[in-house]
Amino acid sequence: MDCPYRRELEVALRVIEQAARLSQTVLPDTDKGAVEKEDNLGPVTIGDFAIQALLTSSLHAAFPGDMFVGEEDASALRADAVLCDRVWTTLCQTVDASSSTGCVLPTSSSDMCEAIDRCKNAPGPGRVWVFDPIDGTKTFLRREMYAINVALVVDGQQTLSVVACPLLSPDDGGKNVESYLSNGSVDPTGRGSLYFAVKGYGAHVRPLFEGKGLGIAIGATPRRLSPAVASQPFRPVTCFRLQESALDDIHRGIAERLGVVFPGNDLLGWVPRWVLLATGHANTTVWVYRQRGRHAKIWDHAGAMLLFEETGGVVTDVDGRPIDLLAGRTLSKNFGFVAAPTPESHALVLQAVHDVLRAKGRLDLLEGN
């Protein structure tokens, strides 16, 4: 792709390919070294730690003046020498750090922990790389759908997106798909998919692997994702009965108001959900949290949203506001999400959200009430 961020894109693509291969090496393990995070927001595995270290070390070497934001921190590794050694061994044994890949490994397990902790920043102005090393860790533990998310945000604006979905077929998409995807949907060919976008230059997809093995499909020709079609029926993607923060009854009521199947596509990870929206397998999503004080995390959305927006999709919060990526690690200036393929369809979905919240007596979730 010939664009102002060509070097950034090339480096990010090569590194995320190696990160995806690492994840697939860990995926079959019964014991993935999972530990619960101190904030009780889910597990973290040796895959999460190793991939964040790889992404940070490699992109810091290429762009030393940039800032980094990532989901994980190294406190659990510093407290558990055995776990730390497992992560370090995984990195050293699975990543091709030759000059052709652009990957740079930490120099030691201690340096690895420092690389992971380099991502503890809050986003600010300037160039900020945002990582979710494994989005959908709970499903990753079950060998189900997950994604690796890399984004470059410049002065609060999504500029570049690279997403690997090792279990999602690059052929899943299009405007006439009849099936719905779930966490257990796995690409039978083993190719997986790699998505990328630069703001103003469209979104693209290509196979991630050559096939059943872990050989990377480096020479595969990308396909540009088609623009969203305003007249097509709504095809939802959501997460049903798997997240305590969700209001499943509200989400069902909105689907009924719009006259669409519920839940439709049903995925835990937010990054795969944005991918389905970009490919056309889905074209709308709504997320209303149980409380106004609950907010999303930047690494679940930055960059991945750009894939959908580059097909013409519109993304706001439940109040109709643009997503503010300068608010911090938590998107504290926004409440929930509403996404649809065009401005006109977005207005319809947003109105349905407000109507259902009022009908169900949840005025506390509407701004100004």
Results as ranks from 00 to 15, higher is better:
M1D: 09
C3K: 07
P4W: 12
V11I: 10
A12R: 13
A19I: 03
R21Y: 13
T25S: 13
L27A: 10
P28F: 12
K37H: 06
D39E: 10
N40L: 15
N40P: 00
G42I: 01
V44D: 04
D48A: 07
F49M: 12
A61I: 02
D66Q: 07
M67D: 13
F68Y: 14
G70C: 04
E72K: 06
D73N: 12
L77C: 06
R78I: 00
A79M: 00
V82D: 14
C84M: 11
R86F: 04
V87T: 01
T89D: 14
T89Q: 14
L91H: 13
D96I: 00
S98R: 12
L105I: 02
P106L: 11
T107M: 09
S109H: 10
D117Q: 03
A122T: 09
D135Q: 06
K138T: 15
F140T: 01
F140Q: 01
Y146C: 06
A147E: 05
N149W: 11
A151C: 01
D155W: 12
Q158Y: 10
A164G: 10
L168G: 06
L168Q: 14
P170Y: 12
D171K: 08
N176H: 14
S179L: 10
L181I: 02
S185R: 10
V186H: 03
D187G: 08
D187N: 08
D187E: 00
P188N: 12
T189G: 02
G190F: 01
S193N: 09
G200M: 02
Y201H: 15
H204L: 06
K212V: 07
K212Q: 12
G213M: 00
I216C: 08
I216H: 03
I218H: 15
P222N: 07
P222I: 02
R223E: 11
R224D: 05
L225H: 08
A228V: 11
A228C: 13
A228M: 05
Q232S: 14
F234P: 03
F234I: 01
P236K: 07
C239E: 01
C239G: 12
F240H: 15
L242G: 13
E244I: 09
E244D: 13
L247H: 07
D249R: 15
D249A: 10
R252A: 15
A255T: 05
E256A: 11
L258S: 11
G259V: 01
P263T: 12
R273D: 05
R273K: 15
L277Q: 09
T284H: 13
V286P: 02
V286N: 03
V288G: 02
Q291M: 10
H295C: 05
I298Q: 14
W299R: 02
D300Q: 15
H301G: 05
A302D: 07
G303H: 09
A304I: 01
L306D: 05
L306A: 05
L306Y: 11
T311W: 10
T311P: 02
G312V: 05
V314T: 09
D317E: 04
P322T: 13
L326H: 13
S332C: 09
K333S: 15
V338K: 09
V338G: 01
H346I: 00
H346Q: 11
A347V: 04
V353N: 11
V353F: 07
L357G: 06
A359K: 13
